[in-house]
């Protein structure tokens, strides 16, 4: 039986933020498959008086394509409800007048169509997967080392993720490589950055104490949300490992079997 003390604040809750991969669906062949009960759980949340947003570090596709994939799986979801690092990066680049050299997956390049990329004065890296070749990494390195003050943005900083054919290195590994090579510290855009979570809260117009984050990544989802004074609940799906429940620095406010269980606990506590 799941510990339910985290639902004590359910009555004062105004909004819920859901991680996507590992909470709504498992990635893999043909785009992935929904996790049992998650389609229904999202429907229930939408039917409630709670606000709902989705927050992902997905950087392999544009939001439009990504959301279309989830709709095909049966999720009731639209683009304006989804927060991902690439659009946040575009906003920052424009605000600071920066022209990026991109080392990102081909599928996400269109997100940067509106940004001037000539004569780059910063580097943006995302989860580029097979595009993380020595040659491509070296090009990014040369842009950075050629700048008087190197500026590196990283879309998330995950260590690795799971695909059907095994564990894969994530963007954080290459961010660390470039940080070490150029002796710089990257600015992380996406989870667990507080700026990123705050932009979601601003969109809902609520305070962090009124919001709950549900994710499968203990450090980036749960820890990141808690750092912003939100509550963070971890699901035992996706990249969850039993050792997460004994993590030295991050303790989830609650741990549940899956999204469906979390939603049922919240809604029943609210008397829905």
């Amino acid at each position: 039986m799941a510990d339910s003390s985290w639902t004590d604040s359910a009555k004062s809750l105004k909004g819920v933020i859901l991680d996507m991969c590992g909470v709504l669906y498992d990635s893999g062949e043909g785009g992935g498959t929904p996790i049992a009960g998650s389609v229904e759980a999202v429907k229930k949340l939408k039917a409630s008086d709670l606000q709902l947003r989705f927050c992902t570090n997905e950087t392999q596709a544009t939001r439009e394509k990504f959301v279309a994939k989830l709709q095909r799986m049966g999720f009731d979801i639209c683009v304006s409800e989804v927060f991902s690092p690439a659009p946040a990066a575009v906003a920052i680049l424009k605000e600071r007048g920066l022209r990026p050299h991109l080392l990102v997956y081909d599928g996400v390049v269109p997100e940067f169509d509106s940004v001037d990329k000539t004569n780059p004065n910063c580097v943006v890296i995302g989860d580029a997967a097979d595009k993380f070749s020595y040659q491509n990494l070296n090009e990014a390195f040369r842009v950075l080392i050629g700048l008087e003050k190197p500026v590196l943005f990283s879309l998330g900083k995950g260590r690795y993720y799971k695909e059907t054919d095994g564990l894969k290195l994530d963007v954080g590994v290459y961010m660390k490589a470039l940080e070490y090579a150029c002796d710089v510290e990257a600015e992380v855009i996406g989870k667990p950055s507080s700026v990123f979570f705050q932009s979601v809260l601003n969109d809902m117009g609520i305070q962090p104490q009124e919001a709950l984050m549900i994710g499968d990544d203990l450090v980036n989802d749960v820890g990141g949300a808690q750092h912003c004074k939100m509550k963070g609940v971890q699901v035992r799906t996706g990249k969850y490992r039993p050792s997460d429940e004994r993590h030295p620095t991050v303790t989830a406010d609650g741990t549940v079997d899956n999204l469906a269980q979390a939603v049922d606990m919240i809604l029943s506590r609210r008397g829905c």
């Binding site: 020595y134 990494l137 070296n138 390195f141 260590r159 690795y160 290195l169 994530d170 954080g172 590994v173 290459y174 660390k176 490589a177 470039l178 940080e179 070490y180 090579a181």
Partner: peptide
């Protein structure tokens, strides 16, 4: 060109 250090550091982090 990048030396071995960045890749070692990346694997250490991973």
């Amino acid at each position: 060109a990048l030396g071995p250090g960045p890749f070692v550091t990346g694997l250490e982090y991973a």
